[in-house]
C-alpha cells in the first residue's frame, strides 16, 4: 500500500496534466491507479494544487461510479447486470458469488482485501451474456458454477503463494 502522505506520484500526475482543473477526472483516475482508491489526503492535495475547493473534488469523485472512496480488494469482480445479462440471470451469479465470499451490497470487500464484488450496468459484451470482469479481464457465457470456479481458482492460487 502506498503511503497516504507520500505524494511523489501524485505530484507527477498533476504535472503531467499541467495542473489543469479541467483534467480533474483524468487526474483522479490516475491517482486511483496508484492507491487503488481515492484517499481523502490525496484529494485534498489535488484540490490545493488545482486551486479548487476540496468539496468540488469530492463532489466529482463521488459522482462517478468508477471512483472509489474506500480501499478495494486486489481482485475486483464486476458482474454485468446489463439487459442481456439480466435476462440471462446474472443475478444468480451475483448471489452465488456473494454467498461464497460472504459479502453484501453494504459490505462489498472481503476482510482479507482480496476481493471486491460490484455490479456494472453494461460491459457491452452482451453477446457473451452473462459476463463477469475480473480486473479488466472479461469472462463470458458464465453460470453460477463456472463463476465460482474462477473465483476458487484465484483463492487457490493466492493460498499457494502464501503457503
Amino acid at each position: 500500500m502506498e503511503n497516504l502522505r507520500n505524494f511523489e506520484q501524485v505530484c507527477a500526475i498533476l504535472k503531467e496534466h499541467d495542473h489543469n482543473p479541467n483534467r480533474l477526472i483524468a487526474i483522479l483516475q490516475a491517482v486511483q491507479e496508484v492507491y487503488r482508491y481515492l484517499p481523502e489526503e490525496a484529494m485534498t492535495f489535488i484540490a490545493t494544487s488545482l486551486g479548487i475547493p476540496p468539496a468540488k473534488v469530492f463532489g466529482v469523485a463521488s459522482f462517478y461510479a468508477h471512483f472509489t472512496l474506500e480501499p478495494k480488494g486486489r481482485y475486483v469482480l464486476k458482474i454485468c447486470d446489463g439487459t442481456a445479462c439480466h435476462v440471462k440471470k446474472s443475478t444468480e451469479i451475483e448471489e452465488a458469488l456473494r454467498k461464497h465470499l460472504g459479502l453484501s451490497s453494504q459490505n462489498p470487500t472481503t476482510p482479507d482485501m482480496l476481493f471486491t464484488l460490484e455490479t456494472v450496468s453494461c460491459l457491452g459484451t452482451c453477446g457473451l451474456a452473462p459476463a463477469l470482469v475480473i480486473n479488466d479481464e472479461v469472462h463470458g457465457l458464465l453460470s453460477p458454477q463456472s463463476a465460482l470456479a474462477l473465483v476458487q481458482e484465484i483463492q487457490d492460487r493466492e493460498a499457494a503463494v502464501h503457503a
Binding site: M43, P53, P54, A55, K56, V57, G59, S62, F63
Partner: peptide, 28 residues
Amino acid sequence: TVGAIDFAYRGSKSTVMPCFGKDLGEVE
C-alpha cells in the same frame, strides 16, 4: 467563491455537503 459545500454522490443519494462528508465547522 468559497465552495465550502457542494453536491456529493448522485441520483437519489445526492446530498449537499462539505468535502468528504465532514461537518461544516471543520471546513473552510
